[in-house]
Design a protein around this nucleic acid. Structure first.
Lengths: 341, 341
DNA sequence: ATTTTTTTTGCAACCAATTTCATAAAAGGT
DNA sequence: ACCTTTTATGAAATTGGTTGCAAAAAAAAT
């Protein structure tokens, strides 16, 4: 038994002495075909090493059993390094997809450029997952576009009031509160926040709000001078902390909007002769692998990436099925390590 | 202008008052169509937000502009953590694909199970990239299968004599030599190696060989007792080093087959009251992010993941085009940090 | 033996593009 | 004006499955 090129269902039909439709039915285990026939067809299919042509199949059925993920690059534009947190998310999303029998198309996107969010339009994918920090203000009109085209998609990240996209996110507000509570318990009341606390980074802003509100509940106010802007990189965290110190802001507790920022901050503190946690308590956000490796190891608000991946996929699939779904908020968890006392 | 459902080329044809064939040609910028017609078609296409249906297109052209990557899980079976080195590779491969205008299908695979390497057979992808450590002996027959089916694929990892697959890999032998050379220069001659130095992990074995050969060139022999078996995890590295110490093997230089192993090793050394680098010099392999964050920071043999991703994609595309390609060996580079003196 | 019901099967339309081939229209040459 | 060449277009076949519909075959009921 031999074939030139790839075997098709017609080849099988020929060898099995049945029609091609019957082959198709047999292979999809349709109850319409006789048990014997089914067996014969499967046997021959295996012998010919036949595989359904997904293009043909998808074309006919108008679906693809594939999801796409758009990863928005960090604003750094740094070619070499990808934010480890998102790499983690990518891993868990891939796993979640596999579990549901879906394939995953991966694509990196520059925020600045036009999205190549054509996957769903071009029938490559049944739905899209959007993932990434960055200036969310840019997204707005594009999200509207996706909605207008009735594209199925879910976003990772903060829910923004008035934005109609479906999101899965960590409870950033609660996470900020956790950090504040920890400082309060340790009686560290001279707090600073490092990170972009503007509407350009809704996640960071929400973390900041939770942090600030919890502090205020305990009559601690966070002055303007106690907030230093930073994007989610080590360098940015380093510089922000550095300038804070240069401005003679004194503090004994530092909450960073992300672990990378925290790592940079610790470096700046050390260089300034301050010790962590004795002089300054530090808490980060994400719980990336490095948080456990640095010295002192970093206390941080963990985002459950495994669960996040699962929920993103699950919600997207539900959305595709036409079910009514709502935004999902995942509980954060404080991982205590050496950087807090 | 409105459409129910997605617009097709027929819709455009209708609005443009031309045939569907002409629309297809116009959109693909065929020189066969008149400039005016082309413009009109493009305009209408944009207005209708038309996107070529990839399923139909791929079905007809028998190609997909998509590559697939199979990531083999670490033998640990640990659900939560993915080897950061491979995550990095995934990132750089994704980038390389994007640069070449290809999409990437990602799939995690358990080595134990049957591969779902059907992407190419089922016309989902034009070629496959295989990535992962693990027991390569298992792969053998499966690789043969792929070859028999004329599937286009390239592997990341050590070239194994007699195995006919095309590989892109780091010069592991040279990397091992680099490590040895460094120890020799520092006059550290009581060396040990941690990692699976068997044919089950050809990469590790090659690193070991390079290490051992270079030492022997300087009349230093590496006894059997100086090799401790470990897979590529922190825990495994910890335990291997621990048992080495328990067996009273004394050494002043340790070469780990991977950074994760090295990190575990350093932990074990510290616990045994040994200091790094004073008592023991440690060198790892990979240069994962954590290598830079641990204390002392880890001297390691860097694998250039960016280049690796590019070469994998580049070679695979060449292979698909039918070009003659050869195995690629990438130069390793020693990154000196605090763990060596 | 005949009718009714159930189980299997095949024909052919369909999905949305690409591409070959034939042909019409326009341009160029004498 | 007539023939040749060039340019632009459309009709229709093709890709490999899936599925509605009609019909044949088998089983059950009368």
């Amino acid at each position: 038994m031999k074939t030139k090129g790839k075997a098709t269902s017609f080849d099988i039909a020929h060898y099995a002495g049945v029609s091609q439709s019957t082959v198709s039915r047999a292979l999809r285990n349709s109850p319409l075909v006789n048990e014997e026939t089914r067996k014969k067809v499967w046997e021959i299919a295996k012998k010919l090493n036949y595989k359904v042509d997904k293009n043909a199949s998808n074309l006919r059925t108008q679906q693809s059993a594939t999801l796409a993920i758009l990863l928005f690059e960090d604003p750094t534009g740094d070619e070499s390094q990808i934010n480890p947190f998102f790499l983690n998310m990518l891993g868990s999303i891939t796993r979640a997809c596999a579990k549901e029998g879906y394939d995953l198309l991966v694509s990196f996107q520059s925020i600045s450029q036009d999205w190549r969010a054509e996957y769903e339009d071009s029938h490559r994918a049944d739905g899209i997952i959007l993932l990434g920090y960055g200036d969310y203000m840019d997204y707005q009109s594009r999200l509207q576009n996706l909605l207008a085209q009735d594209t199925k998609f879910v976003c990772w990240g903060a829910k923004v009031e008035g934005r109609p996209d479906l999101t899965v996110s960590c409870d950033n507000y609660g996470g900020g509160q956790l950090a504040a509570q920890n400082f309060i318990s340790a009686n560290r009341t001279n707090c600073v926040f490092i990170g972009d606390a503007s509407e350009h980074s809704p996640e960071f802003l929400t973390r900041f709000k939770g942090f600030k509100d919890k502090l205020e509940q305990h009559n601690i106010t966070l002055g303007e001078r106690c907030v230093a802007n930073a994007i989610s990189t080590e360098e940015s965290g380093y510089h922000a902390t550095h300038s804070l110190l240069a401005n003679n802001v004194s503090f004994d507790a530092l909450f960073a909007a992300s672990d990378l920022i925290a790592i940079g901050a610790i470096k700046a503190l050390k260089e300034a002769g301050l010790s962590v946690p004795e002089d300054v308590n530090v808490i980060g956000f994400d719980n990336i692998a490095a948080a456990n490796y640095i010295t002192p190891s970093l206390t941080t608000v963990q985002q459950n990436t495994t669960l996040a991946g699962q929920m993103l996929v699950q919600n997207l699939l539900a959305l595709i099925k036409g079910e009514q779904i709502t935004d999902t908020l995942l509980p954060p968890k404080l991982i205590r390590r050496q950087s807090t006392s």
